[in-house]
Nucleic acid binder design. Structure first.
Lengths: 196, 196
DNA sequence: GCGAACCATACAGGATAATATATAGCGAAT
DNA sequence: ATTCGCTATATATTATCCTGTATGGTTCGC
């Protein structure tokens, strides 16, 4: 119902999480109710422009109307500034991408729709929030059978275990404090192949 | 009531007018009613986010959520866009200037105050909106006796004819379609003297 | 002056956003 | 196990958007 505005509301959520702000705190700063914010972020309802402005201000964001022609230049600027200092490694993004593609094809393999939704949400977050090297190992291990899954969907139980592990990683990434530095090695070679 | 979103809705109106699009046409393209658009532009009501994206799309605009920090850079890009591509020739500006100076001295020569006001308004617009070469010819012709007028005010009838012609040119310039290109010769020598 | 285009405004009705409040689920920490 | 913080969800009520339609006023072209 709200496809048109999904990208915008997703950006709101991303900004809030990047600032490690809870919905309650955002509620206090913006004047909207926590319930309202939850629904907006989930896409359950489409905010009015007034609400959008309030939330954006509370997140130190500004709403800009830009000619489509100028969007490449603007994207450059937006990308030049790391919203949060850390960013997922290329490996992480690749793995998330593969899982998302797999999910698009095999959504039905999940036990329940809500479990599938949760899985999708977790992936969306793991696309943006970095994992530590150890967590990446866990991530790879949990999805180690992905190649086989491409041909042959996993059992409910196996899938459920994997989903749980992914969700756990999501929580770790989300609740990490801003200033406990990620132990990211200076030697990390980003482009090595992974066969998770 | 809607001061929060005023800048945004005014940008919408500015964009629509810059593209010489009527509210009706925007209504057709965006799916909102003309009535609705009018109220949004006037600030009588605050649009929902859905309406905003519809209108923005119809105007070839994109909604960007940008960190306040980056706004200076973004404004730079936005300002670099030529609002309107064409600009009056030097000849045109000169002629308008002479007419304005003459008008300042002989305002009383007009039949009525409103006719004088209209004339002044037309001149103000012709200072900024470009005329085609043919229209410039008409312009020069209509004011061909300006030199004599400097010493000796024209008759009411003659002045009225001239005022009418100028207003006609003003309307042509204002209502020109955005995509019928001005036939601006590549050889146009801008600085030749004119003795209109 | 007449007709056409454009804009502002009005009003009724159905749709939906937004509030306030409360609760349930989940993960984490004591 | 219990408590705590965060998020999703539910219900009811109010407020507002949005549509459809219609009209008055203004300006311009003929």
């Amino acid at each position: 119902m709200a496809y048109k505005t999904e990208h915008i509301t997703q950006r709101l959520r991303a900004a809030r999480e990047a600032q490690k702000m809870s919905q309650r705190e955002l509620s206090a700063r913006s004047g909207l109710t926590q319930s309202h914010i939850s629904q907006i972020e989930r896409g359950t309802m489409e905010p009015g422009l007034g609400s959008l402005v309030d939330v954006a201000r509370a997140l130190d964001l500004e709403i800009v109307l830009a000619p489509k022609k100028l969007m490449p230049a603007i994207r450059n600027i937006l990308d030049s500034a790391p919203a949060s200092s850390d960013v997922p490694t290329s490996n992480q993004r690749k793995l998330v991408g593969r899982l998302e593609r797999w999910f698009a094809e095999h959504r039905g393999a999940f036990g329940s729709a809500s479990e599938a939704d949760t899985f999708k949400d977790s992936l969306a977050l793991l696309r943006h929030l970095p994992l530590s090297a150890e967590e990446m190992d866990t991530f790879k291990e949990a999805t180690a059978r992905l190649d086989r899954w491409l041909a042959d969907p996993p059992s409910r139980q196996e899938l459920s275990r994997t989903a749980h592990a992914v969700r756990h990683l999501r929580n770790a990434a989300v609740h990490r404090d801003r200033d406990d530095a990620l132990p990211r090695s200076a030697y990390a070679l980003d482009e090595e192949d992974d066969n998770a």
